[in-house]
Design a binder for these strands. Structure first.
Lengths: 137, 137
DNA sequence: TTACATTTGCATCAATGTTGCATTTGAAAA
DNA sequence: TTTTCAAATGCAACATTGATGCAAATGTAA
């Protein structure tokens, strides 16, 4: 599905900033930070415009935030767009990348009585396949 | 273990700000936000002092950050201080509290070849036992 | 092409992260 | 207890980021 089709589906106007953000995220191999998106985005948008476009896309659940910690926040297309299952994310300390681990499904945890789960986030941290090979540290 | 003993164990000077922060976190039932800690802290410290004390305690792994999302960040004593096992955290959308779910242990996930896990964070979101009872929304 | 609601860019303000530096303080040595 | 010095504090200052109001520009449907 193309960026403008996604916008149309959510009844959002097709603006170049929104379209560009979606395009950059779609093109990225891994989840990507706000600054990386801004750098790769064509056109020089005011930071408020970028901020509001971003917010709109999040609110409409087109893009999804993956919070590794408050220093490392990355974005990917929402599962509803990619049609992926709920899955864990992997953060690599070496290359700082965040990858979707589609093979690691998240099971509904067994909660104490009275607790109701509606959402689960799981971030696994360590060294990824690629970085393991390279260098000693 | 008392706040000043924890500081001593980590070779940190016993200052009232550090001691106070630890005391407030120890006294709290749940994980607690930076602002809540600041409010409950006796004495009026400069925000830089507070910021640096906080940073020091984090760096020495005395306190531990639980990042629900970038809007909701709470702190608790680190597992090495409380002697708890690695466990999941529960975030309640209604009361905004973060509770340790000691009963929900986190198993080492089965990762794709070459991936090495050193740390795992799991945040379960929903409605907690207490809030389930109260009101319809 | 027109018309209007939405979006943009800019100004602005608040909150927060961070650093440098002179002064104060904790704790170890005398 | 007093002295001593590295470490911590308070303050000023600056950068970054979240957020809002408003006039001008833009997207889209009539």
């Amino acid at each position: 599905m193309k960026p403008y089709e996604i916008l149309a589906k959510h009844n959002l106007k097709r603006t170049s900033c929104r379209e560009g953000i979606i395009a950059v995220i779609m093109a990225a191999q891994h989840a990507i930070s706000e600054n990386e998106i801004r750098e790769q985005l064509e056109g020089n948008y005011d930071r408020t415009t970028f901020y509001r476009s971003f917010k709109t896309l999040e609110e409409h659940k087109i893009i999804h935030k993956i919070v590794v910690d408050n220093q490392v926040i990355k974005y990917a297309l929402d599962n509803s767009v990619t049609l992926k299952n709920e899955h864990a994310h992997f953060y690599c300390f070496k290359c700082n990348s965040v990858q979707c681990l589609e093979s690691v499904h998240i099971e509904k945890p067994l909660l104490p009585d009275g607790y109701v789960c509606t959402e689960t986030e799981m971030v696994i941290k360590g060294i990824c396949n690629f970085c393991k090979e390279s260098g000693s540290k």
